[in-house]
Design a protein around this nucleic acid. Structure first.
Length: 230
DNA sequence: TTATAGATTGCCT
DNA sequence: GGCAATCTATAAT
C-alpha cells in the first residue's frame, strides 16, 4: 500500500490535460482521484488508464462525431465524462486536448487509499474483512467498480470540472512517484483493438481483471515497459 | 419502430 | 470458460 497525505495533495493544472491523451496517460498514473462526501474523503491512486483518441480511433466514443452524449470529450480539458455501460455500470473519463478537439482518458483501476470503509459499503462489501488484501483488491479494480466505490454517476458527475477547488470530484497530486509503467493493448474492445493505449503500473496489485498468477504473468510478458522521466 | 452491440462485472458450471 | 443483467446510441427496417 502506498501512503497518502491529504494536506500535501494539490489539484493538477488545466494544462496537464490540455494535451494528447497518450501523453497524459503515463503521467496520470500514480495521481489520485478524490471524492468528497460531506466531511468524508474517499480517495484512490490511479494504477491503470486507457487513452481514447478522436476520429482516428474507432473504439472511441468521439469517433462518430460530437453528440449530446459525448459532448464533454470535445469540451475543455479536465472535465469528467461519465457514461453508462451494459445497462449496469458507469465509467469515468477525464477530457483531454484543447476545447474543440476530442480525446480522453478512461480511469480503469484505483488503489484505495482513503475512505475504504465507505467504498466497501458502496460496493456492498461492508461485511468483508477489509484488512484482507484480497478484499481490498476487489474494491476499485475496474472501471465499473471504481465508479460504484466512489458513487460516481452520469446524473451527478458528468461534465463536472475535476480541477476546481469547489468540486466534490477532483484529480490531485500528492507527490508520489511511480515507476514501472507498462503499455499494452486496450481491454474489452473490438474496434482498433490492437493499438497500445493501455497504461498500467505493472507491479500494482490493484489493476483490473481476475487476480490469478496466469493472467498476471501473461500481461507482464505482453506489455512493453515505457521509458519516462519524472 | 425494432434490432443489436457495447470502453463490464459477477455468478454459474 | 460461458453468460445474464439491462440501458443507450445507433443502425436497420
Amino acid at each position: 500500500m502506498t501512503e497518502f497525505k491529504l494536506d500535501k495533495a494539490r489539484l493538477l493544472r488545466r494544462s496537464f490535460f490540455n494535451r494528447d491523451p497518450r501523453e497524459v496517460s503515463p503521467e496520470l498514473l500514480g495521481k489520485i482521484i478524490l471524492r468528497r462526501q460531506g466531511r468524508k474523503v474517499l480517495a484512490g491512486r490511479i494504477v491503470e488508464i486507457e487513452a481514447y483518441l478522436g476520429a482516428d480511433d474507432a473504439a472511441a466514443h468521439a469517433a462518430a462525431g460530437r453528440t449530446a452524449r459525448n459532448d464533454v470529450i470535445f469540451g475543455p480539458p479536465g472535465y469528467a465524462y461519465v457514461y453508462f455501460i451494459y445497462g449496469v455500470y458507469y465509467c469515468l473519463n477525464i477530457s483531454c486536448m484543447p476545447e474543440g478537439d476530442a480525446g480522453c482518458v478512461l480511469i480503469r483501476a484505483l488503489e484505495p487509499i482513503a475512505g475504504i470503509a465507505a467504498m466497501a459499503k458502496a460496493r456492498q462489501m461492508q461485511d468483508l474483512d477489509l484488512k484482507s488484501s484480497r478484499n481490498l483488491q476487489k474494491l476499485a479494480s475496474g472501471p465499473g467498480k471504481l465508479c460504484e466505490a466512489l458513487d460516481i454517476t452520469r446524473q451527478h458527475d458528468n461534465a463536472k470540472d475535476m480541477l476546481s477547488p469547489d468540486s466534490d470530484l477532483q484529480v490531485v497530486d500528492d507527490g508520489f512517484k511511480t515507476g514501472n509503467v507498462t503499455v499494452t493493448s486496450r481491454i474489452g474492445i473490438t474496434k482498433s483493438a490492437e493499438m497500445p493505449l493501455r497504461y498500467l503500473i505493472a507491479d500494482s496489485l490493484f489493476i483490473s481483471g481476475k487476480q490469478t498468477g496466469y493472467r498476471r504473468k501473461e500481461r507482464g510478458a505482453r506489455g512493453k515497459q515505457l521509458n519516462h522521466n519524472h
